[in-house]
């Protein structure tokens, strides 16, 4: 018991990622504790999203190590050697890591309810009645109980993103990754999505959020990491980093977005 509480939820050690000759991540090392909310901020092209995608193995690392809940992502270690995981094993790891995308990526041919039910039904193979009940509860939690039978095209961006959050929660993840969840939304719809995320944070969900919402970072996040050009420039308590940035690049970035 004591061991599981000390193991960090996410541990990245010198994570490096290149696309061809373009090195996007140049050795990212950071730690996210259980129940912690971390916000990743930085200019576009700084590698925030790529790093997030490495965590659930949507991108394969070029170098370094990344583990979630003490388990190496994408590889199995035996006798000091690393073995690449079969797709099935990788899929199993992803079940426990929820992801929310900038463009929502809801399945357009399924209703909101079907979207939320899909993974528990097909991936976990749970009974339909039980899955539906859970799905309806989740939609209610994100304030969309009355929109269960709507197709994504008939929902606003903010509603779609809240369905997407419910869909990710339906797999009962231990970690939630948010990839700029409010960047594709009209300004007046941002609040409803952030409200849902605040609620999640309050409940103790471990979250990594790539965002440009500094207000959210200040209010909700336990830690704030500023990335630029593939490296972590500055990290710390959000209020301190935001009000008193130490590094020149952080200062320059924050002066533009705040």
């Amino acid at each position: 018991m004591s061991e599981t509480t000390t193991v960090p939820m996410v541990l990245a050690e010198q994570v490096t990622k290149s696309f061809g000759s373009n090195e996007v991540l140049k050795g990212i090392s950071l730690e996210v504790k259980r129940g912690e909310v971390m916000c990743l901020v930085g200019p576009s092209g700084s590698g925030k999203s790529t790093f997030l995608r490495c965590i659930n193995h949507l991108e394969v690392l070029s170098a370094g190590r990344l583990s979630v809940d003490g388990e190496l992502i994408g590889y199995r270690e035996a006798n000091g050697k690393l073995y690449e995981m079969a797709p099935k094993e990788a899929a199993k790891q992803r079940r426990d890591i929820g992801m929310v995308f900038q463009r929502f990526n809801l399945f357009p041919h399924m209703t909101a309810l079907q979207n939320v039910m899909e993974a528990p039904l097909r991936v976990k193979g749970l009974a339909k009645a039980q899955v539906e009940q859970t799905a309806r509860t989740l939609l209610d939690r994100v304030g969309l109980a009355d929109r269960a039978d709507y197709y994504p095209a008939h929902l606003s961006g903010g509603q779609q993103q809240r369905v997407a959050i419910a869909r990710a929660l339906a797999m009962e993840p231990k970690l939630m990754l948010f990839d700029e969840p409010t960047s594709a939304l009209d300004p007046e719809l941002v609040g409803e999505v952030l409200d849902v995320m605040k609620g999640l944070a309050k409940e103790g969900m471990t979250m990594i959020v790539v965002t440009h919402e500094m207000g959210f970072a200040r209010e909700v996040a336990d830690s704030l990491v500023f990335m630029d050009a593939g490296v972590v420039v500055e990290a710390g308590v959000p209020s301190e980093v935001l009000s008193n940035p130490q590094h020149k690049r952080t200062q320059a970035f924050l002066s533009k977005v705040l």
């Binding site: 659930n56 949507l58 797709p87 099935k88 899929a91 199993k92 992803r94 079940r95 890591i97 929820g98 992801m99 995308f101 463009r103 990526n105 809801l106 399945f107 357009p108 041919h109 899909e118 993974a119 097909r122 991936v123 997407a164 869909r167 990710a168 797999m171």
Partner: peptide, 24 residues
């Protein structure tokens, strides 16, 4: 993004194909 969303939910290649990509 559809494939990514399905994969991120832990769906296998054939599930992604049958349930998400082919119907669309």
């Amino acid at each position: 993004g559809q494939e990514e969303a399905a994969v991120a939910l832990g769906m296998s290649w054939s599930q992604t194909m049958r349930r998400v990509i082919l119907p669309q």
